[in-house]
Design a protein around this nucleic acid. Structure first.
Lengths: 137, 137
DNA sequence: ATCCTACAATGGACGAAGTCCAAGTCAAGT
DNA sequence: ACTTGACTTGGACTTCGTCCATTGTAGGAT
């Protein structure tokens, strides 16, 4: 993940303690934290970090294409660091758990010309919903 | 659309002027208004209607399955009265225009067992993004 | 036609999520 | 080590939405 920091530094990022901590907090697979959760975890390592900085940093990471914004439920946005392997999401309707998934096939091809209304369609986002094993019990 | 009101009345809905106006505002195809937009339009016909009532009514319509909540961008929820014909959404990344679309194929079948993580998957939501004809110019 | 009452509407306070900004701080090039 | 422009801070502010005590009314009962 210091790959990430390296990559950002060569893009002109000033490497501050705050940004380092935010990037560290986002490490891992199936990570989908809200901005407040990122702030809480970052604050454990760097107590003075402000909410504004967390929002700024997350926003920059999104703009740079290093993190993806996901709005699963209708509440706070979540931040997904798995930006380099395209994927979709599966979420538990009961507890809100989120997993990254890779369906086969290309849904972009499934939208007939007659259903495009003259749009140039470039992206598709899929969200599966269900009940996770923990909630099925 | 008085079908809708009729249907609701037989389900025990008390038919008030406010609810009637909200239902009327939602008439039509490709309608995806925010709660505030619904309130503004309803207020043209019934100036005293309150925001709280609009929120309540929209929430009830969603619970009754007569209206679908859509969160396209990460801003206000939108309300889609086209609840009886399953569909997905196509939206313009520039101006936010939304169209109802009906892709062929079933994305539920495209999620392999190995990608289900033990979930019982029951629903899938598709959002296409692109640029609409008006914004392409 | 009028009365009753449970259900609905009101509006203002509250809360969560996020943005903005002026002032202070600091990373990194020289 | 100096300098400077980029970064951070914290608090005020905005937007979207919920809650609640009070007031009003739809529609069944009389």
């Amino acid at each position: 993940m210091s790959d990430l920091l390296e990559r950002l530094r060569t893009r002109g990022w000033r490497l501050t303690a705050q940004r380092r901590v935010v990037a560290e907090v986002l490490e891992g697979d199936h990570v989908h934290l809200t901005a407040d959760e990122v702030h809480a975890r970052a604050a454990q390592r760097l107590p003075e970090i402000s909410r504004a900085t967390v929002y700024n940093t997350l926003g920059e990471l999104v703009n740079l294409g290093e993190v993806i914004e996901v709005s699963t439920d209708h509440r706070a946005k979540r931040y997904d660091p798995n930006a380099h392997r395209p994927h979709h999401h599966l979420l538990c309707a009961r507890c809100g758990a989120i997993r990254d998934v890779h369906p086969v096939g290309n849904p972009l091809a499934d939208l007939p010309e007659s259903e495009r209304f003259g749009f140039s369609v470039s992206e598709v986002e899929l969200t599966y919903r269900g009940i996770c094993p923990d909630c099925t019990v």
